[in-house]
């Protein structure tokens, strides 16, 4: 028996919106710790890891650890039946091949029951060790999103360079080139508007903008984004989900041949 209840149902809609352009099908892992997922895109270049801790739910029951294979596109379709202020309950029983979503309006005058078929999905779980990063940039998520959108109109890749001067995002394309530098700015009274750079070593890495801009679909989940970089290592782009957990994206860098 698995049952979880999330009063802030729009959060689940936003989580699925943040994954659906990257991953087609995924196994959701259910355990007493919470509801989590690790999935790679079809080209095995990028990975998304989601954690929603059990404490963040109004009700969370999971009698035994198991995985539910779901089509993310179908899940997004089902969640379209929920209004943004609906309370969402997800239920699954042992041995069944369906999952039930229940959407309740806040005034309890409308209840929708939606059943979705589960899938068998073969997925490779990658072991990602905890690592120390050479540079960690924290900045407003909307700022990061608009930088990626702007640069992707010029080029296909973004080079992220962290130095004492700040973090520079640059691109080059057929029509020209561009670079945007954000300096450390921790003096702001609003912490969500701060840009903070922790740097042990200067880092310069190049990534495919196609993937990075897909990651920024998670912007609505968090006011700040954390970008962790080390030379010749995948970047980690993390959006914290308040009180619940996080969504982390990993992307392998472009390598000079």
């Amino acid at each position: 028996m698995f049952e979880l209840r999330l009063v802030q149902g729009s959060l689940l809609k936003r989580v699925i919106d943040a994954i659906k352009d990257l991953v087609n099908d995924a196994n959701f892992d259910c355990s007493s710790t919470g509801f989590s997922l690790q999935a790679m895109d079809s080209s095995h270049v990028a990975l998304v890891a989601l954690l929603l801790r059990s404490e963040g739910f109004e009700h969370f029951r999971c009698d035994r650890t198991f995985s539910m294979g779901m089509s993310i596109a179908n899940m997004a379709k089902m969640l379209k039946c929920a209004s943004n202020d609906d309370i969402i309950t997800i239920k699954a029983d042992d041995g069944t091949d369906t999952v039930t979503f229940m959407f309740e309006s806040p005034s309890q005058d409308k209840i929708s029951d939606i059943e979705m078929k589960l899938m068998d999905i073969d997925s490779d779980h990658l072991g990602i060790p905890d690592a120390e990063y050479e540079a960690i940039v924290r900045m407003p998520s909307t700022e990061f999103g608009s930088i990626c959108t702007s640069l992707s109109t010029i080029g296909d890749t973004v080079t992220i360079a962290v130095s004492k001067q700040g973090v520079t995002f640059s691109t080059k394309g057929d029509i020209g080139s561009g670079n945007i530098t954000c300096r450390q700015n921790s003096s702001t009274e609003k912490p969500e508007e701060a840009t903070i750079i922790e740097m042990k070593e200067p880092v310069v890495l190049t990534f495919a903008l196609k993937y990075i801009t897909t990651f920024t679909k998670a912007t609505s989940l968090s006011s700040q984004v954390t970008i962790s970089l080390s030379s010749d290592m995948p970047v980690v782009v993390e959006y914290k989900i308040a009180e619940m957990g996080h969504i982390r994206y990993y992307l392998a860098p472009k390598i000079e041949e």
């Binding site: 779980h125 190049t206 495919a208 290592m233 392998a252 860098p253 472009k254 390598i255």
Partner: peptide, 14 residues
């Protein structure tokens, strides 16, 4: 032209 790396080259499967 730089080549796209794959994640499996950095992280091991389990």
């Amino acid at each position: 032209v730089p080549k796209q790396g794959s994640l499996a080259a950095f992280y091991t499967g389990n």
